[in-house]
C-alpha cells in the first residue's frame, strides 16, 4: 500500500472536517477499503478512522415508528437483533448469507452498500479496459466473460452488478440512507443509492466525497419477508442471483408486495410492475406467475448470462411462497 496518514476521530464533525482535504478515505470495518488499496483501486493519502464514533452505533425506533440502524452497526449484530429478526426477517437473512462470520464481525451496514463490483476486469491486477478503473478505457466484460454480469440497466460502458446482499433487502424495504456532509446531509432512498452506467459508468453510488452515511432507516415493518441467495456454493460466495421479497396478506390474497433482485444490475432491481400486479392475487394462482413474468419482460441478457433470467424468475416465485409462510 502507498504511505498514508492515519487519524482516529470521535465525532462526525471531526470526520467531516478532516475529509475536506482530497485523497482522504473513511475507515469503518475495513473489509473493502484495505483490498482496494492492495489492488490499487484506491490510493488514499489519509485514512480517517470513524470506527469509534459512538453516535453512529445503536438500533432504535424513531418517533415515527421507523427503525433507525446506526451506520457503524456490525452486520452480525443487526442480523441477530430480535426486532430485526421479527419485523425485517429479509434483512436478517440477507446479512447472514453475506460474507463470513469473521467479516460480518467487522463490516458495518454503512460500509456494506459502498462495496464495489466483483467484475474480474474491475478487480484485475493488470490494466484491463474498465470504465470504473480508468474512465473512458472501455468495458472488457461486455463481450468478455460476462456470465456473472447484468441483465438489467447496463450499457456498453459497464455491465457489472452490485453484489451487496443487504442492499437488496434495503431496496425492497424502502430503506433510506441518512448522510452528513459539510453544507448539510441528505436522505437517499436505498433503491436509488447505486448509480446506473447510463448516468455515470465510472460511479458506484451517490455519496459525494466527504459525505458520510450516519444511519439507515426502515420506514415500516415487513414481518412476512424472506431472502433467497442462489450461488454456486452453499456458503461464502457472492450471489449469482438473489431476491428479497416482502408481502402483506389478507388470508391467502396478496394485498401489498415489495420485490427486489440482486446481482442482476448495477443496483438492486425493484420489480415495480410485478409488485403492482401481485396485489389481489391469490397465493399459488397463475396470476402470480404472470405478475413475475411482467417484471422480467425487459431483461436484456448478455452473451453468456441468459440463464440469469430463468433463475431470477424461479427465485422470485419460490421466495413469494417462503415469505408468505413466514
Amino acid at each position: 500500500m502507498e504511505p498514508f496518514e492515519y487519524e482516529r476521530v470521535s465525532s462526525t464533525g471531526e470526520a467531516l472536517a478532516l475529509a475536506s482535504s482530497s485523497g482522504s478515505a473513511f475507515l469503518a470495518g475495513g473489509t473493502e477499503l484495505l483490498n482496494w488499496m492492495r489492488i490499487g483501486i484506491e490510493r488514499p493519502t489519509k485514512i480517517i478512522d470513524i470506527g469509534r464514533i459512538e453516535s453512529l452505533s445503536g438500533i432504535h425506533e424513531t418517533p415515527s415508528g421507523a427503525l433507525s440502524i446506526g451506520a457503524l452497526s456490525k452486520l452480525n449484530d443487526i442480523a441477530q437483533h430480535p426486532q430485526v429478526m421479527r419485523d425485517y426477517p429479509v434483512l436478517s437473512q440477507s446479512i447472514l448469507k453475506a460474507a463470513s462470520a469473521q467479516i460480518r464481525n467487522l463490516a458495518t451496514i454503512g460500509g456494506n452498500p459502498l462495496q464495489r463490483v466483483r467484475c474480474p476486469y474491475f478487480r484485475a491486477d493488470e490494466p484491463t479496459p474498465c470504465n470504473k478503473r480508468v474512465a473512458g478505457s472501455g468495458c472488457a466484460a461486455l463481450h468478455g466473460f460476462n456470465e456473472k454480469h447484468a441483465i438489467f440497466g447496463w450499457t456498453e460502458d459497464c455491465v457489472a452488478v452490485q453484489p451487496s446482499d443487504p442492499a437488496v433487502s434495503l431496496a425492497a424495504l424502502d430503506a433510506v440512507f441518512i448522510t452528513e456532509r459539510s453544507g448539510g446531509g441528505r436522505r437517499i432512498p436505498a433503491r436509488d443509492f447505486h448509480v446506473l452506467p447510463g448516468e455515470n459508468p465510472a460511479a458506484h453510488h451517490r455519496l459525494g466525497s466527504g459525505e458520510l452515511i450516519t444511519a439507515v432507516e426502515l420506514p415500516r415493518a415487513w414481518p412476512k419477508s424472506a431472502y433467497l441467495k442462489i450461488r454456486e456454493r452453499e456458503s461464502y460466495e457472492y450471489a449469482t442471483v438473489s431476491t428479497a421479497v416482502a408481502l402483506e396478506l389478507d388470508g391467502d390474497v396478496i394485498t401489498n408486495a415489495r420485490i427486489a433482485l440482486g446481482s442482476v444490475a448495477m443496483r438492486p432491481w425493484r420489480l415495480d410492475e410485478t409488485e403492482r400486479r401481485l396485489v389481489g392475487q391469490r397465493l399459488g394462482s397463475a396470476g402470480i406467475k404472470a405478475a413475475v413474468d411482467a417484471g422480467l419482460v425487459d431483461a436484456r441478457p448478455l452473451s453468456r448470462n441468459g440463464y440469469k433470467v430463468v433463475i431470477a424468475r424461479n427465485a422470485v416465485l419460490r421466495t413469494i411462497d417462503t415469505a408468505a409462510r413466514t
Binding site: Y6, G30, G51, Q102, L106
Partner: peptide
Amino acid sequence: NRGECGACTVMLDGRRVNSCFVLAAT
C-alpha cells in the same frame, strides 16, 4: 491477505475477525 481464507482469524475484543482486515493503528 485479502479476507478470503480465514487462516488469519484471531479474536479482537472477544469477536473473531480476519486480522488481515484490521489495521494495527486501529
